[in-house]
Structures are given as C-alpha cells and as structure tokens.
Amino acid sequence: MSGLLALLDDVAAIAKVAAASIDDIAGAAAKAGSKAAGVVIDDAAVTPKYVTGFSADRELPMIWRIAVGSIRNKLVFLLPALMLMNAFLPQAITPLLMLGGAYLCFEGAEKIFHVLFPKGDHKVEEDFDIKDPTHLEEEKVAGAIKTDFILSAEIMTIALAAIPVSSLWQEAATLALVGLLITLAVYGAVAVIVKMDDVGLFMAATGRSGAGRAFGRGLVAGMPHLLAALSSVGTLAMLWVGGNIITHGLEVLGWPWLYDQIHHLAEAASLSLPQAAGFVTWAVTAAIDGLFGLALGLLVIPVATRIIGPLVDLFKKPSKSH
C-alpha cells in the first residue's frame, strides 16, 4: 500500500511539473509572439495578393494550401534547423536571414520595376509571364509558400531570441506553439479578408433592413479596392521587411552605421510629433528600410535574372541520354 501511495505521489509531482511546464511554454509563446508581431502583420499583408484575381471557389483552397505550406516551413524545416543552429552554429543564423532579406528585396523591387517599366527588361517580364494558364494557381501557391518561408524564418528567429533560456525540449515546444498560433492568426485573417465580398453578397441578398443590404453592397463594391491596396502593401512590406533584415543583420555582424543612422533619423522625426512618437518612429524606419530595400533589390535584379536564374534552370534541366 505504501508503494502505491509513493507511486501516486510521484505521478502527482510529475503532473505538477508538466502543468508548470505547459504554463511556462504558453507564457513564453505569448511573449515571443508579441516580439514578432511586426513581421506577422507584414506576412498578413503580403499573402492576399497571391489569391487576388482567382475565382471565389479557389480562394479558400489556395489559402489552405499556403497555410499548410507555412506550417511545414515552420515545423518541418525551420524549427529543427533553428534549434540545431542555435545550439551548434548560432553565428550562421544572421547571414542566412540576410540572404532571405535580399530575396524579399529582389521580389519587391522586381514587381515595382515591372509596373514602372513593363517592357524594360525581358528577363523581368519572363518572371511575370505565365506561359501555361492552367499552372497559374500552382505558380502562385508556390510563390506564396516561398515568400512565407523567409517571413516565417524571421518570425521564428525573433521568437527564439525572445524565449527564456530553458531546456531544449521546452524551447522547441514554445517555438512550435508560436509557429502554429501565428500561422492560424495570419491565414485565418487572410481567409476572412478575401471572403468578405461573399459575406457582402449574402448580406445584400438576405439583409432584413435597408441599411444591412446597403452595407453588404458596400462590402462587395469595396473589397476589390481593399485587395488591390493589400497587394500594394504586400509588395511594400517585402521591401521594408527585407531592408530591415539587412540593416539589422549588418548591425549584429558589427557594421552598425546604417542601422544607427536610420534609428537616429526615426527618433528625430518622432520628436516633431510626440503625441504619436511610436507610430512616427515605426513609419520613418519602415520608409527608410523600404527605400534601402528597393535600392538593394534593383541592384540584385540583374544578378538574379541573368546569372542565378539561368544557373538554376541549367541544374533543373534533365540530362540527355546518349
């Protein structure tokens, strides 16, 4: 009997430790998620542009596929890679993030270049030419998952840095929880945004009051403009997030001049409007990061389209048998 009681005491003690660990994980996840909030907002702004222009019945399936790809990015690839690098090669994390930031700058700059100079460079135009319309959805989903990988890497790295030092399994569990919750929040919000026109149609057709039906018609009329605006914000977000990754990475690697100059300019601007100092600081920082990202992206375009792209295509081609 005494052995059974001792066993029950041990089980109770283990349960208490497990419960405390779960509380610690939840608390750490909330803190880490708040640290990554800025990139999360950018992620939500980037995604809707990938489903703009498709029929209504394809929007949610596309968002679902992108969300599944995002979870795979975070849990299958980034989580183990970040944990391993954090344990054995932490100095590699910043350079890899900077490579991802350079890619975001390239993608954002390429889209702006395409708008400003639609016939300016045939290599850039090839990136926007979907030669087989039946593969358009596949191209868009693949592009969204690729962009999500870089934004997810930034989110997960920021979250990992904010997690208190603890056991390996607890840090991994916290990071996994952050990844899942952020994915649900981002793609849940995106799904609501892209389906608001359907909600508007329903309200316009079944509303019990004139105001309700008018509101529904307003939603239907306004959503294309909102989605177009979000698409533009998504492109700008690529530039300011990519630019910020690069400037912050340079600061971490021991070249803080550019990061410090941007920080000082943002602080000086915030003094002119102390009532909204936080917003002004963010806006000025984002604007300068975005301009830097655009300049860097424009410099990367010829390298990516004329050197890296052809090399990738060369490796993709199957070897001919003799």
Rank of each mutant, 00 (worst) to 15 (best):
G243D: 08
G243S: 07
N244V: 00
I245R: 02
I245W: 00
I245S: 00
I246G: 04
I246C: 01
T247A: 08
T247V: 07
T247K: 03
T247F: 01
H248S: 14
H248V: 04
H248L: 09
H248W: 09
H248K: 08
H248Y: 10
H248A: 13
G249E: 03
G249T: 02
G249D: 07
G249H: 04
G249C: 05
L250P: 01
L250I: 03
E251D: 15
E251F: 13
E251K: 13
V252I: 15
V252A: 14
L253N: 09
L253K: 10
W255L: 15
W255S: 13
W255A: 15
P256D: 06
P256M: 00
P256R: 04
W257A: 14
L258Q: 11
L258W: 10
L258N: 03
Y259F: 11
Y259H: 12
Y259E: 08
D260V: 13
D260L: 05
D260I: 10
D260C: 02
D260R: 10
Q261H: 10
Q261S: 14
Q261D: 13
Q261E: 14
Q261A: 15
I262T: 02
I262Y: 02
I262N: 03
I262D: 02
I262Q: 03
I262G: 05
H263L: 14
H263E: 15
H264D: 15
H264K: 13
H264F: 15
L265F: 12
L265W: 08
A266F: 09
A266K: 12
A266H: 09
A266T: 12
E267M: 06
E267V: 14
E267Q: 12
E267Y: 07
E267L: 04
A268F: 13
A268M: 15
A268T: 12
A269Q: 00
A269L: 05
A269D: 02
A269N: 05
S270K: 12
S270Y: 03
S270T: 12
L271R: 15
L271Y: 15
L271S: 08
L271P: 00
L271N: 02
S272D: 07
S272L: 14
S272N: 09
S272Y: 12
L273I: 15
L273F: 11
L273P: 00
P274G: 05
P274W: 05
P274Q: 05
Q275A: 14
Q275F: 03
Q275D: 08
Q275P: 05
A276D: 07
A276H: 04
A276L: 01
A276I: 04
A276C: 02
A276S: 08
A277H: 06
A277E: 14
A277Y: 09
A277P: 00
A277D: 10
A277K: 13
A277I: 01
A277F: 03
G278T: 14
G278D: 14
G278Q: 13
G278Y: 12
G278C: 08
F279W: 12
F279N: 06
F279L: 09
F279P: 02
T281I: 09
W282I: 12
A283V: 12
V284N: 01
V284G: 07
T285K: 09
T285I: 08
T285W: 08
T285G: 15
A286E: 07
A286G: 06
A286F: 09
A286P: 01
A286K: 04
A286D: 07
A287C: 07
A287Y: 10
A287R: 13
A287L: 15
I288P: 10
I288H: 01
D289E: 06
D289Q: 11
